Simulated scan of single mutants.
Amino acid sequence: MSAPTPAPCSPEDVRRVACIGAGVIGGGWVAHFLARGYDVTAWDPATDAEDKLRRLVGAAWPALEQMGLADGASQDRLTVTATLAEAVADAQFVQESAPEKLELKRSLLAELDAATPPGVVIASSTSGYPMTDMQPPHDAAATPQRLVVGHPFNPPYLIPLVEVVGGERTDAAAVEWSSRFYDVAGKSVITMDRELPGFIANRLQEALWREALHMVAEGEASVADIDASITEGPGLRWAFMGPCLTFALAGGEGGMAHMLDHFGPSLKSPWTRLEAPELDGALRDAMVDGCAEAAGDRTYADLVAERDQGVIDVLRATGRLGGDRR
């Protein structure tokens, strides 16, 4: 591997971010970076991408105003370019959010590596692929060491978490730089020590999701029961305390040690089924119908607004409604 090219500026000095891919995740990143006071250039190959992107940003802006905009934050600081090369020409950081197709990711990252100024870190929003799998072949990317994963949660303009990890050919300095940049940009950062398919949070929520599918498939619980079991139960604790510390408190003054000694044998009980069930037509219909029943007369826009307000309220109630950390 060739020697890493020094980053052209410090994370604190970044002023222009390029977002490649302007769908739900990419558009959410655009809204977040604009709210944090950055100039943003965006590119997406879809012919109607700009209209959709500006609508997404406009819809997100009221929530972002509630959270507190950075000095100079404005939707007018968004430029949508005609080509990928134009989008990254002056970028000081690049966030790629293309669809989850491995070959597409590889070819796009190679194209970004060729077009982006030397030393500028390129981060992928992939929700599951390790960067080692996405890094283009040696003959397709001159500087794969600047490619990292910056995995957000939807919507990126509201959910603070971003998981950062490099691949086998990623330079440690690029991972460190990226983690610091996301922190400066107002995100809550987990810098992973090693690659893990699905990363951390997705693997945890996937386990819960698979068990939910099993219960619906077996007629053991309804969609409404499953959702209520979280929103009215452990979800209220998880908003401010993770499952490990929550379980530690279950051990009383003895903490996690007592909890494990007391409840450890229950791990052998048949409480969960971690293999995914067959997603057949019946299970699919049950999930779709259950969610439609739960939504009632609320439209998609109504549900998005309700979700956004709920996240804001939880963040405010738990003292985590962060302002600009730059």
Rank of each mutant, 00 (worst) to 15 (best):
A3W: 09
A3M: 11
C9L: 06
P11D: 09
R16A: 13
V17T: 07
A22K: 00
A22T: 15
V24A: 12
V24H: 06
H32G: 02
A35S: 15
T47Q: 12
A59P: 00
A63H: 11
A63P: 04
Q66H: 11
S74V: 06
T79Q: 12
T79F: 05
T81R: 07
L84V: 07
A87N: 01
E96M: 09
S97R: 02
K101P: 01
L102I: 10
E103V: 04
K105Q: 03
L108Q: 03
E111M: 10
A115K: 03
P117R: 06
P118H: 04
G119C: 10
M134V: 11
L147G: 04
V148R: 03
H151Q: 01
F153E: 02
L161A: 10
V162R: 00
G167F: 07
T170W: 05
D171N: 13
D171P: 08
W177H: 08
S178Y: 02
M192R: 05
R194S: 10
L196W: 01
A201H: 09
A201F: 05
N202C: 04
E206I: 13
A207K: 03
A207W: 02
H214K: 02
E220N: 14
A221G: 10
A221M: 08
A224R: 14
A228N: 11
A228L: 15
T231I: 14
G233H: 09
G233Q: 06
G233E: 04
G235C: 08
L236W: 02
F240I: 12
M241T: 09
L245S: 10
A250F: 00
A250L: 09
A257S: 14
A257N: 15
H258N: 15
F263I: 07
P265C: 08
P265D: 08
S266C: 00
L267P: 01
S269N: 14
P270N: 09
P270Q: 10
T272S: 10
L274E: 12
E278Q: 06
L279C: 01
M287A: 11
A294P: 00
D302N: 07
V311W: 04
T318I: 12
G319M: 00
